[in-house]
Structures are given as C-alpha cells and as structure tokens.
Design a protein around this nucleic acid. Structure first.
Lengths: 367, 367
DNA sequence: CTGAAAGCGCTTACAG
DNA sequence: CTGAAAGCGCTTACAG
C-alpha cells in the first residue's frame, strides 16, 4: 500500500477544468457543470447560456475529470472484463469485441486475467472482485471458463451488474451464450445435404448440458430429414479419459491426446462406417484430420469433418476445417446491451436474462 | 458528455475510509494516511502507533480509494495497452502477459483497440492518446503493429512514459523487440545440424530492417559453419506482390495467397533444389506445408520447413510446424520493468532504451 | 511526533 | 433561472 510519490515521473499535463470553462463563459461552475455533464437535461439553464458554454468547452477542449466524477458517486464508465487468460484463443476476440462495444458507448474495459500464466500465480478471481470494486467499475463481464475456480456468487453479490459469457451456476444470472443445439443442427444439416448418411458425433462429456444440447440437435436434424440415429454413432470422450487441448508453458506447444482420437476413429469410422464426423471443437477436428490421414483415410473424400469454434487453427489445417463460428462479436454486443440495461434500469426480467447467440456454419475443405 | 446519474444502478457498497481507520485507531486521518499510504517511509510516526494503525486497517480491510488519490496527483497504477486488435493472435498473449506483469506490481491495464473490428470503425489511435490522459494512466504500452496509422510522436509527447513493442519511428523511444537476427540464426543452425545443405530463405520484404536482420542471420550462420550462401536461395515476396494473412470479417476466414507461395516453391524447391525453407512467419510456413503436399513434395522427408512466431496454428498443421517463439511473456516482463523505471526515475539512458528478446526454437514435425 | 486545514475537480442540495 | 457552499476520500504543506 506504500505508493511513493516524491520521485514519480508522471508528467501529467495541465488539463482544462470545469472552472476554466465557467470563467471563460462568464458563468458559475455549477451552471457549467449542469450544462456539460449534468443529469436533468439542460432544463435549468437558458438556451443561450447553454450554447455559449458548449461553444467555449469545445473551443477549450474541455474533458471532465473522471476521478472527480467518480468521487462524487458518478459512473466511472469503466467495466471489468474477467477472463481466465486474455491470450486464450477461445476468448481473445471476445475481450477485443467487448472493449470495442464499450468504446462505442464512451466506456472502457479493465482487463482481469484470473489465471494469467498457469505457471506464474494462483487463481486471482476473488482478488479481482475486490479490486474492481475498489476501482469503482460500473459492471463486470465475466468470461472465465466455467471449469475454473472462482466464487461467482460473491462476484454477483459485490457486482450486481455482472454479465456472463457461457453458462454459470448462479441462479438469476445475466448470461449470453452460444446455442450449441443449433450448432449441432447446422453441422448435421450441412453434412446430410452433402449426401453423407453415416454421421458420427464426437462429444467431450455427455454429462454436460452443452453436450446434451448437441446430441439433441444432431438427433432432431436427422429426424427432420426422416433419418434414424444410432447410439453407436455417438462417441463420448469422457468415457475414454477425456480429451482436451493442453498448452504446455514449458515447451510452448499445444498437445491433444492422439490415443483418444484413435479410439474415436476405431469406433466411428472403422467399426461403424461413418462417412462424416461432427466434432465438439476444432481441436478434435484438427487432430482427426491428422490421424485420419495417418491411417490412410482421405478427407473429405472418404470422411468429412466439421469442427466447432472457428478457432484460428481452422484455416491452416490440411484440408482447412469446416466448422461453426460462435459469433463472439455478436455475443459481445449483446453483453454490452445487457450491461447498459443493468446500469440504467437494474436487473432484467427473469425471462430476458439468458440470451442465446445463433452460430454460423463456415464451410472449408474438410466437407 | 451527458452522464445521467439519477437512474443509475451502480450498487456501490459502502467502503471503509481512511477516516474510519483513523477513528478506530484513535489517531488523526493525517497520521493514518501517512502510515498506510504515505510516501516518506513511516519516519514521522512512532513505531507503536504505526503498528496499531496497520493492525486496525487490516482488520477493517481498508483499501484506499484510487479516485481520491488520483485527484491529489498520485499514481493511478493504471496503464494503457494500445493494440490494433487485442484478439489478434500476434498480440493477444502480449496483452495478457502485460496485464499479468502489471498485476504483480499492483497495477492494472486498460485495453485500447485502435482498430477494433476492421468493419466497425476508424483508427482510434489518436482518440486513445487523449482518453488515456484523461483517465490519468501512469504510462502506455504501445503494441500497435507499425504498419497501422497513428501519431506515435504525439503519443510519446503526451505520455512520456510509453514503452513500445517492436520497432517504431520515434527517436529515443523505449522499445522491446524480438531479435530477428538471432531467430534466423537459430532456424538456420537447426537445419544445418539436421544435415540440410540447401536452405531457402523466404522473406516478406527485403526493404524492411526486420528482413535485413534475418538475411544477415542466415548468412552469418552459414558462414559460421563454413558454408556459402547463394542469392538465388533468397525469396523476396515483395517482388511478387507480397503475401500477408488476411482475416475476412465477412466470411470469418483467414486467407493467404497460394499463388505467391507457389512461385516461392518454383524458385526455391523446383529450380534451386532447396531441401529446407526458413520462413518469415508461420502463415508462410503453414501454407507452404499445404502447397508442398499438393505438389507431391514430402515434408520433412524432402523439404524441411521452419516458421516464425509460434502462432497457435503451428501445432495443428500436418505435420506440426517447427518454428521460432518470440517469447512474448519475457517481452512483457521487460516492458514492465522499463515502465517501472520510467515512472520512478524518468527516461532511461539512451543506450538502454532498446531491449532485444532472444527468441527460442520450437521443434516439431516439419524438420 | 501529531493534528487541523486546505484543496484536488467535480456534483448537488440549498438559497436566492 | 443562477450562484455560493458543502462534500466525495484522499495527501500534504503548515502549525503546534
């Protein structure tokens, strides 16, 4: 807490104050403040005076001092953006889009990496709850993957203006999420339309709602085409130890368990004769492409592959990976809309608190 | 500038003030402030009193209000991080690491996307210069690619505490950058050690210093091994219209010009018999892998390929791409060190203002 | 060694 | 319709 000042080189330039504008315009600070930053419209000031004040303020390039406004209890026009790690490709664009959307409303975002570098420090989730309150943010965007620790309930309690990205275990929370049911239908439809008839579905863990949603989408779309689905065509990675991408911070490489992917190929392609695979994410998709080639299976000639995420890697696999984009730009905009509502009018009606984003199919060479 | 307050739902909880601590400890605010947040050490307060104050502050969980401190001219402990787009894989980890490093010093970063979404708005570089000054940041990290517009001189003038990532055209600027000369030597050495003897070098534009550095590294390393180099083994993409990755925000895909890559293969592999290619970046590397396969050239059996960046895609190409990591984590830490120096002691001696980071070879399947 | 007071730049009751 | 004054939570001369 010991912040030395004496020797700091902050080089802050003298800025125009409200008082300067007031003086130049020949009015009191109260009136100037009322006109320039005030709340109740400009009702209390004569039209002419107001215009004069605006003119002077513009000429002097007056910008209110946010610290002073904050001290008086005004909005800071700052939001916190919590994310496990901002560099994570699954979140980095969301971080960017949230900021861009905030700037359009004259606001800014303070970034909070709750994990940061895995090798560097512990989970900072709770630290940020306190720190963001101290900084006086108007609200918090929480895009921390839900498999990371952190007291979400405390977050919402301390920051009622919190909007989550993706599901969270807090009743009544405000959430924007990608619709995985539709994602699965889009992938399935695309493959059926291309004449594929034996579609394998690769899931990470059927105990998760997100995977249930995919399974429903996969089934409903088959049904809509009058096709049957078949238990044997569904692969649940969780039953084989699971398969997740892992970034090794020592070797600076990503790894993904080939063994599990090979089991999936055995079951779906070799045994069940799948001619297409709908994957839970692009890491699965990319690894399948590589393992299928290693086993002499041509993509897309023999087997087509669809991923999910539209992660950076999708354009650089061979062949490039057809996948589903989660439209994080649209998600960010909806999150900001929600936040604006929260700040100006308080909590939304319960039925409006969960917004689902309809994802988009991106066709590339793997189908 | 009209920030309505009346109906805002900020829900700010009452926080413990310095005055509360002072009262509870039975001292004046001045003394409490001196002990808890003061500058000149604790010299002016009796040991016993100071301890008592600390004890009370801890018990009450006192945290100074940064807005009030800022108003009195103290550091805000906030830095701006300017970046063309925070989602950009070339920068997203740097953004994260800068924040993580800042947090370790009790500071935070405000993100500024100067481009944001290409389709959404104009360059915001100059806007941020003003806005960050208004917010009173202690300094600015500028990681905007130098091919984007923006008045860097104005930035440094308004924010003398600015640290750049990668070269910038401002005399005397504080800069941290990756050493591309060493990068080229590392790639060259690795290939020579693996027995390759005909190394092609793929550059983006020989008019850039960064490419000159690579060429020098490539030559010096050959020389160190007693091998000759050969003009014909250097491919300058700029002479063929250039080749850069392009993210199409409509189709949500990345594209890279296959035609130029094919010309490079014609020249280096077909005509000159290259058995290895050192590339200017991973986009080149990944596209070369794909085009070489399409032309029946086996990688790494016939031709080895080395990229540069260690971009996400490097682990998911087929084969995975050997490349050079630019160690953005280390860069971020050096940038923060520089910033701390700048804030506490002012500009560094001229000879210490440019720091080069030694990159690291990451070996994967393409060599 | 410690306290009372002024002031940073604003907003907002409260008087006129 | 407008101004003088108080106060947000701090820091820092200035007195004692």
């Amino acid at each position: 807490m010991t912040h030395k000042k004496t020797s700091d080189h902050l080089n802050r330039l003298k800025r125009v104050r409200l008082a300067d504008v007031a003086e130049a315009a020949g009015v009191s600070r109260a009136v100037a403040g009322q006109v320039l930053n005030g709340s109740k419209g400009n009702s209390r000031v004569a039209e002419k005076t107001a215009e004069k004040i605006w003119e002077v303020a513009r000429r002097m390039n007056y910008q209110p001092n946010p610290a002073a406004q904050q001290l008086k209890g005004m909005r800071t026009r700052m939001f916190g953006t919590l994310v496990a790690s901002a560099g994570d490709p699954l979140r980095s664009f969301l971080v960017q889009y949230l900021d861009t959307a905030a700037v359009k409303k004259g606001c800014h975002t303070i970034i909070g990496n709750t994990i940061g570098r895995m090798d560097v420090g512990p989970n900072q989730f709770d630290y940020y709850i306190e720190e963001l309150a101290r900084r006086g943010v108007d609200g918090v965007f929480c895009a921390v993957h839900n498999w990371f620790d952190g007291d979400r309930k405390l977050l919402v309690q301390q920051h009622p203006n919190t909007v989550f990205y993706e599901d969270v275990d807090v009743p009544g929370a405000h959430v924007v999420k990608a619709n995985r049911y539709i994602a699965a239908r889009l992938a399935t439809r695309h493959l059926l339309e291309r004449g594929r008839r034996r579609l394998g579905l690769v899931l990470s863990d059927l105990n998760r709602t997100s995977c249930e949603d995919r399974l429903r989408g996969y089934r409903d779309e088959h049904e809509a085409y009058g096709f049957e689905t078949d238990e044997e065509m569904v692969f649940d990675a969780a039953k084989h130890g699971g398969a997740y991408p892992w970034h090794d911070t020592k070797t600076l490489t990503w790894t993904f368990p080939d063994e599990v992917v090979d089991i999936a190929i055995d079951q779906l392609v070799r045994d069940e004769g799948a001619d297409a695979l709908v994957c839970v994410d692009d890491f699965w998709g990319a690894t399948l492409l590589r393992r299928l080639r290693a086993r002499g299976v041509a993509v897309p000639a023999h087997v087509a592959v669809v991923g999910y995420l539209n992660h950076y890697l999708a354009d650089w696999t061979d062949p490039p990976l057809t996948t589903i984009d989660t439209l994080q730009g649209a998600a960010a905009e909806r999150m900001l809309e929600m936040m604006v509502q929260l700040v100006s009018r308080g909590p939304l009606p319960t039925e409006d608190r969960v917004v689902e984003i309809t994802p988009k199919l991106i066709v590339r060479g793997s189908t």
